[in-house]
C-alpha cells in the first residue's frame, strides 16, 4: 500500500511540474513542452485508472505476485547522505577526501562494519583513481586540502 501512495505522489509531482509550460504558452518553442505536458497528464490519468483496477507496480528484480517487502529507508537515507556529503567535500576537501568518505559511507550502508580496512581500501581506491585520471586521462580533479602531499 505504501508503494501505491508513493506512486500517487510521483503522479502529482509530474503533473504539477508539467503545468508550467502549459501556463505560459505562445507559439513555436512552447509547442513541444505543451505536447509533452499533456502527454504526461494523460499518462498519469491512465496509470491512476490502472492502479485503481489493481495493476500495482512490481519492483525490479521481483516477479508479479511476489511479496513486496518494505524498502529499507535507513540504508537509503545513509547512502543519500554520503552522496550529498560529496558535493560539500569535493570543493572544500578535494577529490581524495570526498571519494574516501563516500566509499566508506556506502560500504557502511551495505552492511560493512570493518572500518579500518574499508577506510584503507577507500583511500587507496581514491588515490589510484586520482592519479590515473589527472595523469593519464588529463581530467582535472581538485587536490583540495591534500594539495601539498599529492
Amino acid at each position: 500500500m505504501g508503494s501505491l501512495l508513493l506512486l500517487g505522489v510521483i503522479v502529482i509531482w509530474d503533473t504539477s511540474r508539467t503545468e508550467l509550460p502549459a501556463l505560459n504558452m505562445t507559439i513555436s518553442p512552447k509547442l513541444f513542452p505543451l505536447i509533452i505536458g499533456w502527454f504526461l497528464i494523460a499518462l498519469c490519468a491512465i496509470l491512476a485508472i490502472q492502479i485503481i483496477r489493481g495493476g500495482t507496480a512490481v519492483p525490479e528484480g521481483l516477479r508479479a505476485g511476489d511479496k513486496i517487502e518494505k524498502s529499507d529507508y535507513k540504508s537509503f537515507a545513509f547512502i543519500l547522505l554520503s552522496f550529498l556529503s560529496y558535493i560539500v567535500l569535493i570543493t572544500r576537501g578535494g577529490f581524495v577526501v570526498a571519494s574516501t568518505v563516500v566509499f566508506v559511507g556506502i560500504a557502511y550502508s551495505f552492511g560493512n562494519r570493518k572500518f579500518v580496512k574499508t577506510l584503507l581500501i577507500g583511500l587507496i581506491f581514491a588515490v589510484v583513481t586520482y592519479f590515473s585520471f589527472t595523469r593519464y586521462l588529463h581530467v582535472d580533479l581538485p587536490a583540495g586540502i591534500l594539495k601539498g602531499i599529492l
Binding site: 519492483p59 525490479e60 528484480g61 517487502e69 524498502s71 529499507d72 529507508y73 540504508s75 537509503f76 545513509f78 547512502i79 543519500l80 556506502i106 550502508s109 551495505f110 552492511g111
Partner: peptide, 8 residues
C-alpha cells in the same frame, strides 16, 4: 540506492 534498500 535500490540494492541497499531492498536486496542488501
Amino acid at each position: 540506492l535500490y540494492i541497499a534498500s531492498r536486496f542488501k
